[in-house]
Design a binder for these strands. Sequence first.
RNA 1: GCGCCCGUAGCUCAACUGGAUAGAGCAUCGGCCUUCUAAGCCGACGGUUGCAGGUUCGAGUCCUGUCGGGCGUGCCA
Length: 561
Amino acid sequence: MKEPLRQLVLQGLARLQEQAVLPADVGVPFVIERTRSKEHGDFATNAALLLAKPARKNPRALAEALVAALPKSEQIHKVEIAGPGFINFFLGATAYHDEVRRVLAEAEAYGRNASGAGKTVGVEFVSANPTGPLHVGHGRNAVIGDCLSRLFEATGWNVRREFYYNDAGVQIQNLAISVQARARRLKPEDAGWPEDGYRGDYIADVAREYLAGESVEADGHIVTGAKNPDDLDAIRQFAVTSLRHEQDLDLKAFGVSFDVYFLESSLYTDGMVEKTARELIAHGHTYEEGGALWLRTTDFGDDKDRVMRKSDGTYTYFVPDVAYHLSKWQRGYGHAITVLGSDHHGTLARVKAGLQALDAGIPKDWPEYVLYQMITVMRGGEEVKISKRAGSYLTLRDLIDEAGRDATRYFLIARKSDSQLVFDIDLARSQSNDNPVYYIQYAHARVCSVFRQLDERGLSWNRANGLAQLALLDNEHEVALMSEVARYPEIVETAAANLEPNLVAQYLRELANALHAYYHAHAFIVDDANLRDARSALIVATRQVLANGLGLLGVSAPEKM
RNA sequence: GCGCCCGUAGCUCAACUGGAUAGAGCAUCGGCCUUCUAAGCCGACGGUUGCAGGUUCGAGUCCUGUCGGGCGUGCCA
């Protein structure tokens, strides 16, 4: 609804320029925004305030000139000048009625837009190493990445969901020797247990399956346990596949899937690491010191130079990181997002520096990172840190099992990613009015319930008549609800542009509130068929937007609760 | 030491990216079920936006300083 107003203001400004009230060369980044208070109408613009200085005019006088120059519009009921020079727009009821018609006409597509123009965006998230079950931090990562992907899809992007993992490094070696130790009947407290070995129970499970010769499948290949505790290579392959498989099961239970699983080892086998190193050397940003090869990342904003190749001839992790991102660039991810725990933020500057040092035409702000803060999980008023299965941390599976997929997803996405969050298990699993997930779902189920009632009473909704009778919707609660419904496309747009899916969660709560309030203030199933059909149209539109919004969050929209 | 993120009601969080009187939920207190689901609605209480300056018509939002919390700062991944 903002765009038509924006056009009106632009036309008004153009007219003022023709009349020489405004200098011809001013371009002003004015905004059309929702007002906080209904006293100020539905929308406001600050154009006159921003133009006052360049035009050397009093802002209120300028506002009056601008209002006089605005083209007429049927959607606008009234225009007022307020405060220091705000221009407030009061929409007529027909503007909202038109929006209800739009919702019903567009249905699942309502709120979507084509701003992405089919361009490709790569969203990399989770990217957990296969050394253990996913933990709660991965859960936050997963839901942020998944919801961002859904938002990109809703705004016309071609989305590639990507999971990158290290299947060959020191940590994987550590995994292999830990499983081997278990296969040799050692326990973490025994003498001979590897010093930094993984101690969780899951290591024993993997060892048992390996010894039993079971088969596991992940990322398109099957590995069968070789049973031999001395074959470390076989153990490693089995363990990686087994843990990847377990992660896949957790992700599936969480409603998250990927298009691409990218193995770090492939960067070595296909020569990308070597090639990247050669490129960096060729572009003259490296030097040798102390037997090691350094990259002058300080030339690109890093605070110290970084070692690329250690004196023992092996590469530091940061070279494959750069190679990996180069691969994304070469695969056509013109826009790339990486969802990363803020404890890894130190890697950003050097990866970006490495990419710049390649002189490959990669923009300075590519890729874009979404950093999220740590989670504290509370149960019974105490912090929960230990999971039975993982030993040292709480797993995502624990959370899903206790709170359910919907509540877990909602709780992890409802907060802005850069604020630390407290996940209260007792609250998330409570089937009570304390729980915001149920509040929203209940609004959806409530509308469904009204239609079941309608049916039971032998009535049915005449959709065409409802849409023809929307003018009957004029009470305070109806206007408030229609106004809330009409905000949805803006929410999608803003959430996608700012990479803030939490805005959708926030919005849905407000929409549900408007629906619940309307429900209590007015009966929907009334004797007057015209009014009944019109009200039904409004609540169907509301249900549609609730379902669309919940869909963006990957949370179900139940018909009955 | 240096760098990044965060400090908003007792608690958990918003505030449309610089807009008008800073809003919700929980908790506390008080109302509302013979009527479409009370997993709900309505009301009350609760604030010097950590602190001090600055920028401008206007600052929770931007800048500087300061205090507090988290994270990072390896020839570890």
